[in-house]
Each structure stands twice: as C-alpha cells, then as structure tokens.
Design a protein around this nucleic acid. Sequence first.
RNA 1: GCCCCUGUGGCGGAAUUGGUAGACGCGACCGACUCAAAAUCGGUUUCCGCAAGGAGUGCUGGUUCGAGUCCGGCCAGGGGCACCA
Length: 888
Amino acid sequence: MVKVRPETYLLLCEKPVMATERYNPRISEPRWQKAWEEARLFETRNDDERPTYYVLEMFPYPSGRIHIGHTRNYTMGDVVARYKRAKGFNVLHPMGWDAFGMPAENAAIQNKVHPKEWTYQNIAVMRDQLKMMGLSLDWSREFATCDVEYYHQQQVLFLDFYEKGLITRKTSKVNWDPVDQTVLANEQVIEGRGWRSGALVEQRELAQWFFKITDYSEELLSAIDELDGWPEKVRLMQRNWIGRSEGLMVRWELVKETAPKGESELEVYTTRPDTIFGASFMAVAPDHPLARKAAQGDPALAAFIEECRRVGTTAAALETAEKKGFDTGIRVRHPFDPEWTLPVYVANFVLMEYGTGAIFGCPSGDQRDLDFARKYGLPVIPVVMPEGADAASFQITEEAYSDDGVMINSRFLDGLSNKQAFDEVASRLEMQSLGGRAQAARKVNFRLRDWGISRQRYWGCPIPMIHCEACGIVPVPKQDLPVKLPEDIDFDKPGNPLDRHSTWRHVKCPKCGADARRETDTMDTFVDSSWYFARFTSPRARMPVEREVANRWLPVDQYIGGIEHAILHLLYSRFFTRAMRDTGHLDLAEPFKGLFTQGMVVHETYRAADGRWLSPSEVRIEGTDGQRTAYEIATGEKVTIGSLEKMSKSKKNTVSPEDITESFGADTARWFMLSDSPPERDVEWTDDGAAGAHRFLQRVWRLVNEAAPALEGVEPKASRDGTAASISKGAHKALKVIEHDIEQLAFNRALARIHELVNELQAQFPALGKADAATRSAAREAVEILIHVIAPFMPHLAEECWERIGGEGLVAASRWPSYDPELVTDNQIVLPVQINGKKRGDLTIARDADQAAVEKAVLELDFVKKALNGAPPRKVIVVPQRIVNVVA
RNA sequence: GCCCCUGUGGCGGAAUUGGUAGACGCGACCGACUCAAAAUCGGUUUCCGCAAGGAGUGCUGGUUCGAGUCCGGCCAGGGGCACCA
C-alpha cells in the first residue's frame, strides 16, 4: 500500500481539470485511454507498407494479479513502442497469456474451481489492470495459450516436428517431482529441487516424449556469436549451458581373463588424452552396461550399485555423498603398453548421461581422481608440470595439477606442451587399430540434453499421439485435430485426471481401427511460450503461422523480460524457431534480434520480533537515513527493517499496481519505475520516490498550463539568434540526447534529461507574457518538443498538455519532432583548462578555433601565466573541442 | 571448485568510452509565501578547512600530459554452472 498523505491528494478528487488546477489522472487517464481505443491507434495491420518494428515483452502467467514487476517490464516495452511509432514505424506490440500450468490445477484442487474458469477469470482481471496502465498494446491480437485455437496449432507443429524426426520417445531416467507429481526437464531442476514446488527431485524411469534439441547443439552454440543485440551475460550463460567440449573417444581393451562374457572393450570419453600416461584406474557409472554385467556374478557389486541408485543424484545428496568405488576385478590394457593393465571400478560419481558413462582416472591431473586414488591406494603419476618446474622434484601431494604445462613421465610425450601432447596422442590412437577399427576418434561433446516435454498434468496442451497395441505409436491425423482437453474432470485424487478419465482416453487407432489409448501426458508449458511470438504475427490463422507474414515481422526487434529466463525460455525459443524453419513454417533461425533483461522491483522487508513478516502498510517508519526505526502499527512494537528483496507474497513486501494507479495515476507509476535506476538493474520501490515522480508530473502540467495563454495561436518556430535562441537551443539539444537515450534503452538518462529541460524552461518562461513574437514561437516549439519527449513515458499527461496548448489530433498519433543540427552545436565553446592535469579554469573560444589559436589564447589567461611564472610551458596539449592541458 | 559481473556523496545513480567526477532525482538543512499547515518557489548539500587551498571514484602498484574509465595484484558484494571426465 502506498501511503498517501490525504492533504496532498485532496485535489485528486472528482473534479474536472481546470486551467489553474492540478492535473487529475483519475479523470484524464481513462479519458485518453478511451480516445486511443476509439481511434484504434494501436491496432497493427499486416499490410501496412511502412518499415516494421516488433517490440514484445514476455507475456505473463495469469496468476490473478498484475505484479508490479510486470508493470515495469511492460512500461519499458511501451516506451519503445510509442517512440518507434512516433518515428514512423509500423509497430507490432501485442499481449497474450501464458495460460497453461500448475497453479490453475492447484486452485482447482483447493478451491473446487475448474482450471479453465479460474484461468479465464484471472485473465479478465489482469487485462483490465493492464489497460489501466495506458499501454499501447494491440489487443486485437490477444490470445491465451490455453485457447483451443492456439493449442490446436501447437499440436500441428508437434506432428510436423514428429514427421521431421525432431521428436522421439524414449525411456529414460527422469526428474520426478513428488509434490507436483510430474516430470521436470533438467532446466527445471534448480539445486536438486523442482523449480516450482521446491520439492527434492527423485529419479524415475519413464517413457517420455523428447524434442531433439541436441540436434541443434552446434548451431545453437555458434549462432550465439551473432546475437549482438543480447546482453553478454545471457550469451555466456547459454554457451555454458550448451557446454561444448572437444575430446577423444578412446576404446580400451579388456584383459580377456578378467572380462565378463561377450565384453571385450570399454569406451571412454576424455578431454585430456594428454594425461593418458598418468592413468591409474578406470571408472564406470553404476548403470553402465559393463557394471551391470559384472554385477550378475557378484552380489557385493550388485549391492553397491543398488546403494548408489538409492542415493540418487540430487544436489543435496551429491554434496554430502562420499566418492565411493567398487573394484570389479576387470582390468584394461593401456593403449600404448600392452603390459600395463589398470583396474576398472564402478564409481558413484560417474554419470551415465555424459560422454560414455565411463572415464579413465588420472589422479595427478584431476582433484576428484586424486581423492579417489588416495582412498583406494592407487598410483599417482605426475604427467603435467607447470612451465619451468623441475621434472625430477615435481610431485603431487594434496592438490592435483590441472592447468596447462609441460609433459613429464609420459614416454614419447615428455617435453611437449600438454596441448601438443593432446594432438600427439589423438593422432597416434586414430592410426592405431583395436578389433579392426581405429582405437580412438576425436569427438565433440555437449552438456545439453534433449528436452523432455511430457508432463503428467491436466492443464496443458494434449500430446496428439495414440498408443495402439498392434500399430504402436500412431500420430493423430491432422484432420482430427485439435485433441481437446475434456472439461469434465475431477481432482479428487493426486496425479493426472486425464489418466482416470472414463471416456477421453479411449480412442480408435487411426491406422487399424482397433481400440487404442490416447497419450494422456500433456506438454511442458515451456512449449507454449516457445512460439507465441510468431503466432502474434497472424493470431487467427488456420495454421500455426502465415509464413510470409511471420517472415516480415520476425525476428522480434526488441524483446524485454526477466533474467530468470536467460536459459530455459530463450533457448527453447531458439530451438523452436529452427525447428519451425526446418518444417517449413518460417525462414529464420533466431527469434529475438534484441534482448533486454530488466531488473526486478524490490522493497524493504519488515519483520516483527516474533518472526512474522509485515507488509509496508502495517508498518510506520520514523526518522531518516541510518536512523530509521520501524514500528508495527497494530501493536506499537519495534520492527526489524530487513534487506531489499524481490517483492513476494511470502515476505509481504509487495506494493500493488492498483494502489499506485489509484493514488497517483498510471503515468506516475510509469515514470517512477523508469527513473533513477538503470533498467537492467533492480529498482527499489519507495513512497518518497513515487511522490517525487508525481510532483514532477504536476510540475510539467503547471509549466504547460501557465505558458498556454501566451502560446495560443502562435506558430511554433525555432530561433537561431537573439534571446529566443537559448530556448530553442535547450529544447533541440535535449531532444537529441533523449532520442539517443531511448534508442539505447537508457530510460533513466532520458528521464534525467527531461528533468533538465523542464528546469530550463521553467527558468525562462515567467517572462513569456511580455515576450516578443520570436520568443513565443520558440517557446511554443519548445513546449511541443517537451510534450513529445514525455509522451512515451507519461502518455496521458502528454495528451492533456497537447490539448491544453490547442494541439491538433492525438500525440500518440503524431510524428516525433526532429532536431535542427545547427541548434545543437554552439559557435562559442567553453574549454576546461588544466595545469598539470588539474582543472584551473575555463577558456571561452570559437568552436572552430585551430590548435594554435587555442594555445595562444590559453597562454594569455591570467591563471595560466601565474602558474607558469614567466617560464615557457613544457608542453600544451589541445584536444579539439574537449580540453586543454598545460604542462608546466 | 570453475566461469562471469559489480564496487563513485546519506541514498538511487550520471560522466559523450582516456579529457571539467558527482548531471538528474530522493533525502536532509536554510529561507520566501501562509494565522498555520499542505502545496509551491529560491538556496545549500563529496570530505577537511573561516578562507586560500587540499584530498577524493573499494585497496594497492603501473601506463599516460591526463585514469572512475586501460593494465597487474589484492579485498568486498552479487550472479551463473557444478561429480561434465
């Protein structure tokens, strides 16, 4: 709750705006919103000839309320949209709803309300809230991902991907969320817990549908280099996530007498073949085929494998789990020395999912291997030493040496750098034969896994597949789409209601006509958000997208959203765009040309002595700065003021957008959200800050309002000389900088510059009543510029001001003014003059004065003469139009 | 553990990319208007100093006529990944 001092806002009541009064957003904002809607200003046509500009904010999940974080996100997008529209672009700025997902089902379970009803009601509420913000959105293109028309087309895409071989079904270990009772993608497991439920994730074997995102690993990685409109941070995170490594696949021969029947070799992936002479053991994952086979004749080993399984791979388990191994008794032959054999362990730290599920251990070069070797008494042979170290005395004791260096104890590799050794080993093993094939091959490996999309949930897009006893898996024929969600469902038992539905799951096999069963899993909701940006270009099409239309709009010129989607959503969307390209829906690879990740809105937290969180409205604060003390209003007890945190229900540090719009209006909220903090950083919501923003809004209104009579019927015209020129110069200079700042999305800088412009005009306007015609013209033009530059930020106020000065039409439909290059450069400039690097004064001189003239003028300055004390300067550095430095 | 980012007044932050450090805002203080308050307007506000002047962008060393900005070392805070072979 924003605390509004009643006295301050008495004038905000239901009175019409009059010339001498305060600006009343409660009356003006709905009025202009209506005017824009009636003029259909923001409805975008696909057949418009002007250059396109697509600005998009990540669409919200309809949780029930618009959050203040949304408000900041959409305001940024709206500033860009309004600016680009004024610049003459055909702007697409749509909004929709990411409407499938768990909370709707939770609400169904808790409140006995149908997920569909719950979702659409929420959407209705949130749409109204967004409309109050005065966003220039094209509502005619709105859709929700739970609309049948949308998920119908998503099923079409699924079938196309399936046909193209981009989807597979495989049984695999999956991350099972025991609370939500569903499978999670790797990306949705954060520190071993479900991203939504926070429950510890378990491992289960399940048959799942997978999108083959790994088919695009290389392309998704290398294309990151071209994404220069993305924050470096996000590019880096995606690179790390895809995790490319170059290494060698090496097959090791098993010593026949020790090997299980039918097994003759063990394949291992390594990125450090250079350390091959430091190898002292092999280790395989507990579910590696060799381990399983060996366990058949060895109950102790079988028990060990079982134990590893139970521990699982949760992060919590991993951190505490000891590195354990079990010697299988199997031995392998060293590829470069048939006499040298090494033991094969089953080890709990080896992952089946990466590489081949087997490694060779080099204790001297890897800390984990070293720990393992110490524990099981295995040899530690140093093979790489730092450059310049002494080979005879170099030893590994506590710490492994994993950096680059020089090879030692490695026979033919000795003296090479480890990089050279990598190549040497690789080429030799590629030539060497084992069982009739090359013993090794260079291999690029990726960390990225295929994207498992099956979810055991009701409220999601049904997977259009049918299981037939006779025919196996059969896709639903396209003419039978959509596979609609049944509406008669019950949530009395946990798990997926579709599974229990009496009729929905029974279907005839499209191939043989026999009784068959529908796939009851639905798609991960991240699928829904992986192509919605494309759907916005032709939201009512009877196909996923109209190719030509989508090609014209895409990629999204400016995409804006939270950093929390740096990997998941953005990577999936990049994959989807490629998959849609390869199935003929689109002709591009990258969905988002410009990406901007905005910071969060944060607020102080308050906590009572007994640990209860208190909301800002329950707290009274006394004192200022470091001396602030907070008291709980209800009890009068002292309250601890906590750190700034993301607004969240659990910590109660929330401020609702409605409260702000009600007390200050949308324009104030928009202005405050963008002022001060750079948009990529967090902004702290403070009542003082919001009140300050409102104060500024009123100041602009007063300035325009009071100047209006003197500007009536005056031709707007810039002045290049006389006193009027200073007004024109100020306005045009501001216009130039603000334009640049908006293009850079440096909204805080743009706002600071608008502040300066208002300060300047305010200083010059009191005399306007008695001013000459030229000054009035200049003033009129300056005010018009001011209105245009505030319009993207405070669009309602801008319209009100525009109307006040008798402007024609709507600001929202008008063109952005252009600055006069001659007015933004001064003929006389003030050069700072330094002596020995310290500023000692200024020199006012003609802009085009040459080096010699500047030098001469500088040496005549009194403070320079004084500093030089009659001696000639050692050096005079003149940086044209910047600075002068005299070295004494 | 690995990778990355950020350190500027009481606070949020500017600084044209190596050229006047602290724009703009918030807060604070002083003053005007008012019976009074609110609103509004004017002024002060990096630190030390009455002043002249001096110091100053986490610490430290360097490059340069000149460093918040570039380079080396350290410290602190934040983020991402994490048995990845």
